[in-house]
Design a protein around this nucleic acid. Structure first.
Lengths: 335, 335
DNA sequence: TTGAAAGCGCTAACAT
DNA sequence: ATGTTAGCGCTTTCAA
């Protein structure tokens, strides 16, 4: 917007340095077969002219875009506000930072967004894709899995096992949480689930049922939230109405647990004396609820990091194995 | 990864349709000067072949990348975990979605990240940049403001007035908050500031001082947080130690307010009876603290949206005016 | 309305 | 070690 002066081109650098364009190109990509003298001449010319390679031209010539995309599928743009994603992004960024790849973000939450993502998948606008939080049995899953660019899934969609994915051990974590409740002597254990059209939501419900089946306890005390705070609060009310004497709840996300805690307090019940609570995610805020929340830690940052690593590996021609990241129980005061 | 079949090129489409490449190109960009017959022939060929234009080639020819970047500067990658940014992203996305522009995310939080952002600014790897949360007097500010691609600032950095920015009325909001405290009859009013090396942090402190100066009250009860929950908690402790009889605190972010509320409860003080609290940001969680937090609402989604709009306007050759978005007091129970 | 041809700026295979 | 040459796939004058 200031000086409308064009960026210098490689040819200009070559001319200035008194060498051929290919020599200049070699120097810039530090390829071999260039004499010391020319090498330095080119370097000087680059500095003098302030030359920077044109990324687009390079991309066209090499057939490599130099960018990967993190796509969040879903039906609600606001979903991205979940702190979960922010941490995934930070994890992804931490490994991309070591490379020359840029990160594109695709919030495929509207019809238009979905269409753009599909197109992106087909047009090689990026060298690789990380795809998260597919809902229902989104046709995108199959499409992505056989796209012409490498795709890594974050979490497993329902009814579909992608070739390359990294997921947290949601089922194991839920089981851990529920077992803890059982061991503590609780007998009327309920659960508030997340969205059951998501792999994670369903897996956590299954883990809950696994544990109760083993313990020989009733596992039909179920209500549904949507991972949000208000959803948790509402679900807790319904549960309390149906089963006033429940003595524990496994809640599939910390946000919902915060809501449930609120409802429990309003109903005059004390936690954990009357009702024990275990959440899921171990968000920073879980530390500061009243009482502090016992929850399942899920390595979110690592999830992002490993997705990016797996994508890199795929892009370099390897065939990495799917990864399931461990979850663990974090004991605080609510159970 | 499945069929290694190349995407069809424009030439192939043209051949199939029995027209020249330029005719095909015109059809695809729905340019005029193509007969109805040819137009349809090309359309058919496109469908048959599943042709999709190669974005990179187009970018090279048009000198337009088709992507803009949202850059978050700073010294800590984890900073992005602030829910604030997620909402900005959603706002930005909402307007980009209507265009054909992709969004790149640049977390310029390490030295390496900063360097990459600078490079990106110079190499025209994107058609425009939105730059947020510059700390201190980051040299990036001046650099960006005269970069060869359009740049919109989100918030104003310290000591530097960018040409194009959108900001929230932080100073006005802080003043509103403090005035509310004054009107409520409070007389020993303290503040917990955010980072003072950020424009927003400083502006909120000034607003606080503005209000107290007008009211003729002491405005030296100041302690510093870093916008984080723990920072708020610590600052509150120090404040209480120094001035046990303070009767109100304006706190420059809701996260810090949550921490302060905790400290206040531990010290046996009741809110708002003993100490009135006003926060800033109006995060969703402010609704659910105990007591619910009176705070300053800042239109974060709109901030993102307007940044994107301004950038678009700039990219189309206009010279939009800077924008300051209004903030407003949200009354709940803490003051 | 149509098509030929000249780029956009870079890389890479090939010949020297 | 070095330079020549032919692309990468699209847009866009320009002349017909």
């Amino acid at each position: 917007m200031d000086a409308p002066r064009r960026q210098p081109t490689l040819d200009e650098v070559a001319e200035r340095a008194g060498v051929s364009r290919s020599a200049a190109s070699r120097v810039i990509n530090n390829a071999p077969h260039v004499s010391r003298a020319k090498r330095e001449a080119v370097r000087r010319a680059v500095d003098d002219l302030g030359y920077v390679p044109n990324a687009t031209a390079r991309a066209l010539a090499t057939q490599q875009v130099g960018a990967v995309v993190l796509a969040i599928s879903g039906d609600d743009p606001a979903m991205f506000a979940d702190p979960f994603f922010a941490e995934v992004v930070v994890g992804v960024n931490s490994v991309l930072e070591e490379t020359d790849l840029e990160l594109m973000l695709s919030l495929a939450t509207s019809t238009r967004g979905q269409a753009r993502l599909e197109q992106l998948l087909r047009t090689h606008q990026a060298d690789g894709v990380m795809l998260m939080s597919l809902h229902g049995d989104d046709p995108l899953a199959a499409l992505a899995d056989r796209a012409s660019v490498p795709v890594v899934f974050g979490g497993r969609p329902l009814n579909f096992e992608p070739r390359y994915y990294v997921d947290a051990d949601n089922r194991g974590g839920a089981r851990l949480a529920t077992e803890h409740l059982v061991k503590a002597g609780r007998r009327k254990i309920a659960t508030i689930t997340g969205r059951l059209d998501e792999g994670a939501g369903m897996a956590r419900l299954q883990g809950f049922q696994d544990a109760l089946a083993v313990a020989g306890l009733d596992s039909s005390l179920i209500d549904h939230g949507d991972f949000s705070e208000d959803g948790g609060s509402l679900a807790m009310s319904r549960l309390l109405e149906r089963t006033p004497d429940l003595d524990a709840v496994f809640i599939a996300s910390d946000q919902m647990a915060v809501g449930a805690l609120r409802t429990l307090a309003q109903s005059g019940r004390s936690v954990p004396a009357d009702v024990a609570i275990v959440g899921f995610n171990d968000l920073p805020s879980a530390r500061h609820t009243v009482p502090p929340l016992t929850t399942i830690n899920q390595p979110i940052h690592a999830l992002g990091r490993e997705m990016a690593r797996m994508l890199l590996s795929l892009m370099s021609g390897d065939h990495p194995s799917p990864l399931i990241l461990p979850t663990r129980l974090v004991l605080r005061d609510s159970a």
